[in-house]
């Protein structure tokens, strides 16, 4: 379960959205703050549903939030 191949720009996007806190984002997408922390640290890959919700909050396409890096 360590680091996943899916990376994200959630931290950067939060910062660009009036320095939105992890708690605020968590509340808006309906998860706990711990889940946001785990995602930002790359320790948890969200479901497709949650990924779309996060992208919707930041009003950006999914690819701008998440990217996949295949293993060599």
């Amino acid at each position: 379960m360590g680091k996943s191949n899916v990376s994200n720009n959630i931290r950067k996007l939060r910062f660009n959205h009036d320095e939105m806190t992890q708690q605020e984002l968590a509340k808006q997408v309906g998860v706990t703050r711990q889940t946001i922390i785990a995602m930002e640290q790359g320790k948890y890959s969200p479901s497709l549903d949650l990924a779309f919700r996060i992208a919707h909050i930041f009003a950006v396409p999914l690819e701008e939030v998440f990217s996949y890096e295949p293993e060599d």
């Binding site: 968590a26 309906g30 998860v31 706990t32 703050r33 889940t35």
Partner: peptide, 8 residues
């Protein structure tokens, strides 16, 4: 924060 999300 007593919600149980997908990770939980």
């Amino acid at each position: 924060e007593d919600i149980e999300d997908e990770r939980d």
